[in-house]
Amino acid sequence: MDANMQIVLPLIILQVILLVLAMFDLIRRDASRVRGGKKWPWALVIVFISTLGPVTYFFAGRKD
């Protein structure tokens, strides 16, 4: 593995954990308890915007 890759590795692992955590929460959640009432826009946000995507979903995407 490239030496630079190795340096960034922890950040990549973190990003993956956050992504999985956010997706897991989104899948289990009822659509009515997601802001906007639809799940797919949030799925896109979580998957395609690294780190900030899951964080945004976590703070702004969930309703209780």
Partner: peptide, 25 residues
Amino acid sequence: TSYKILFIPLVFIALTITQPITMKM
């Protein structure tokens, strides 16, 4: 139930660990 107990430490780690990484890179 809200995963805060996992999420907050992870976000905090992400926040601080970028520092050594960017410095090195």
